[in-house]
């Protein structure tokens, strides 16, 4: 029974870890932090696995845990950590590393709470309502955070970088 449950959990994690890590990386801007974040979120999933595995939209649920873990972790550690704007230490393809560096540096400058909203809205493609539900905040806050996050991105990136992205 226990072995079966653990096997199900392992299969669940293996099937989703790439996507979770990629999202975590966009939130943290650092692979090591992304790894810690993903592991912490999955540990929470494991603790409640008996219940969670029967949740109807389990992927959305687990992503919600990831985002809330990120927010909690940030709030707990925000003044002790330096957000990294370093390029990933794995080979990237399809985009020049300097452009990627610029983008990650820009994202690192966006306030974490705003960044979480932007990642949910524009990377996870969630609606305002879904984003609010995932982060446990009001829809109005999602809208204002989106607006401010976009402002921050715009001010950091500037027109030149935006042209690069558009091209």
């Amino acid at each position: 029974m226990r072995e079966a449950r653990e096997r199900e959990f392992d299969e669940f994690v293996l099937a989703r870890q790439q996507r979770l890590l990629r999202t975590a990386y966009l939130l943290c801007g650092d692979w090591h932090l992304a790894e810690d974040l993903t592991q912490n979120a999955l540990a929470k999933v494991y603790v409640g696995w008996n219940r969670i595995q029967h949740v109807e939209q389990i992927d959305a649920y687990v992503h919600r845990i990831l985002f809330r873990t990120y927010i909690d972790t940030y709030r707990r550690r925000r003044k002790r950590e330096i957000l990294s704007a370093a390029v990933p230490d794995v080979a990237g393809t399809g985009i020049a590393s300097d452009v990627r560096l610029t983008l990650m540096a820009a994202l690192a400058r966006v306030t974490p709470r705003y960044r979480a909203v932007l990642v949910l809205r524009y990377w996870e493609d969630r609606s305002v309502g879904e984003t609010a539900e995932a982060l446990g905040i009001a829809e109005g806050s999602v809208k204002s955070h989106t607006h401010r996050g976009l402002q921050q991105l715009r001010s950091v990136l500037g027109d030149q970088a935006l042209d690069l992205i558009r091209s």
Partner: peptide, 8 residues
């Protein structure tokens, strides 16, 4: 563009 295509 920022999302890594390769995940460690």
């Amino acid at each position: 563009a920022a999302a890594p295509e390769t995940v460690p």
